[in-house]
Design a protein around this nucleic acid. Sequence first.
DNA 1: AATGAATGAGTCTTCATTCAT
DNA 2: TATGAATGAAGACTCATTCAT
Lengths: 201, 201, 201, 201
Amino acid sequence: MSTALPEAKEPKRERGKQRVADLLDAGAALFVEKGYDATTMTEIAARAGAAIGSLYQFFPSKESIADALVTRYTERATKALERLMERAPAASSAGLADMLIDLMLELRADRDVTAALSQAVADVVERRRPTRHAFRGRIAAILRIANPGVDEDAAAAAATMIAMVMKSVPVLADQEAEAAAPLLPQARIMLALYIDHVIHG
Amino acid sequence: MSTALPEAKEPKRERGKQRVADLLDAGAALFVEKGYDATTMTEIAARAGAAIGSLYQFFPSKESIADALVTRYTERATKALERLMERAPAASSAGLADMLIDLMLELRADRDVTAALSQAVADVVERRRPTRHAFRGRIAAILRIANPGVDEDAAAAAATMIAMVMKSVPVLADQEAEAAAPLLPQARIMLALYIDHVIHG
Amino acid sequence: MSTALPEAKEPKRERGKQRVADLLDAGAALFVEKGYDATTMTEIAARAGAAIGSLYQFFPSKESIADALVTRYTERATKALERLMERAPAASSAGLADMLIDLMLELRADRDVTAALSQAVADVVERRRPTRHAFRGRIAAILRIANPGVDEDAAAAAATMIAMVMKSVPVLADQEAEAAAPLLPQARIMLALYIDHVIHG
Amino acid sequence: MSTALPEAKEPKRERGKQRVADLLDAGAALFVEKGYDATTMTEIAARAGAAIGSLYQFFPSKESIADALVTRYTERATKALERLMERAPAASSAGLADMLIDLMLELRADRDVTAALSQAVADVVERRRPTRHAFRGRIAAILRIANPGVDEDAAAAAATMIAMVMKSVPVLADQEAEAAAPLLPQARIMLALYIDHVIHG
DNA sequence: AATGAATGAGTCTTCATTCAT
DNA sequence: TATGAATGAAGACTCATTCAT
């Protein structure tokens, strides 16, 4: 039973993983489209091609879907930031600004989901606090590597400002189409100016 | 008669006017506290010290409260911007940045409400589009008054960026308390740097 | 006070009567248009150009409007039937049939109102029972005047059948327009045939 | 699959089918007893021994129950008329009258429901128009088979009159008990006389 | 494990009726 | 007397979650 069919459960697990991914994607899409509250568990199941019972097999509550989605975003964001940290020390102000903007561009889809959830699921903001704190800590660290003269508090404040600009990247990216002028380059400039001011100003 | 409170039946007696104001304030507070969807009509009425029927006497639907609130914000924002426009031409980059930040600080409470509604009431984003457009148009105009050499598209893009920073002011203001360092001054700096770059850069 | 201004209250009474009539007409129209349940007290007042408070000054409840309307119909129907009774004895079967159809044509509008109310206000059917009974009694009497040989029960049954056909007159009259053929003449024929059968058959 | 129960989600399991039937019966009974508007969704569910949520699982709105009921009546009436059509050509005027009366007697329960709904659900009258038209068309056809000399318009008008008498059958049947004399035989006579007049007169 | 029916608390909204001015 | 605001019980409908097959 164990050696005879070692991979017997593989397809099942495989299928289960696919199910979970589909369900998560369906939830993500719907949460962005219509908001957390307006999205129905039945809808999520339907879009994933699953029965409502199946959805509850994997996610015991609506909030657990939100949790999973936030976790997914956190993991991806963390990894992306780690990759960025390696290249950051060598970068100029403008280079750093670009990296940060590009980071958000990469995380854009996930970020939209998290934004939608932050409003509706009170818990999410709370849960994300340490992550956000860590995120800013890394940015502050980068700043202080570039200029050790910047004191901790100043670096922390600057990191918050930088995070704020980064947060607007998905929104700006969405407006690209309708706006007459290119917004992202302006965001890069704004960020570069500010970083430069913090480091060399 | 007045264009205020669309969809809401205008009260004809003094008592009714007070009721409407109370109801609106209760709604605003609750929407910010728990979000649009999580706020109950019954709760709004209760907080305003009114019966549910009284609430519906003036606001025929939950959405009509949102509408009224958005309209109120739009009116106040428009007025505030108009006042700012008078003083703007004479200001330096830093002065202009300060004015804009202060504008948002003044509108902060209303802005928070509108932000909460924008997420949940699909219609709100749509309705606000022209207002937002006009708002940015004014900012772009200010930039081009300061430096007529800036072309229209560039001014428009810069205005969008500036609006974005302004939008974050209420959030930053809320964080002042918990953050180790003062955020608002940093926002002023960031904005001043950028405006200066657009005008003189 | 009494001799000096004897007609002082006349205009008031006059106005009051007009009010009541307007209110009743508004109610009648709306009950027919949308049914008793779907009609709102507020609507009735509005259509009559009165405030909701005024409506309640004259009619203490929604049902009291229905009552008044039914009473009005009963009175008019009774009067009309009395007039008919005078001419009935001398009429032929066809003549009698015509009179009965014409009677309903005359009462048509009021009948429509009563029909609408009968469905919704349980009380109305009950209240109208004696009137309906009397109405049929008169018709049965006419039949027995025409042919005293018809026994009471047979006359009563025939009267019920005749009333049934009469009841359909308003409906048929409404269809005249859209129907390709004239319905009322057919109703006259059907009734004449049946009356003739009862009396001479 | 089947055309039955429009608007109602078809149950997929046996249990669901039974539920739908029970729910429909409960609705029919209550609509007749107290009228459409006065009947509560909660009551319907209760009488069917179901939770309010179960009711909504299959009938998304109160009106959808009315729709389903009307559809059920239409189907049954159509079938019954088709059966009648086979025997009609060979019948005498009296025989035909009897068949038509018996048809309504058979459909009596369903007809009562539809009558109750016609008043309250505006849509019902509209939806039934084509069915009613077809129904009359069949009756007109029967008349013209009996006597091809009857022109189309005359047959149509006569069919409407016949339908009118048929419509009163359930009412008459209900009155049998309280009335002193038998009404149904009189209805048969009235109809026979009229049909005979149309065909041979 | 998968499916779809069952459940019922909770929400928005309506409206007849009453009150205060 | 006339007016319009106030009231709250009641009803349609939703949806997260649980169960039975």
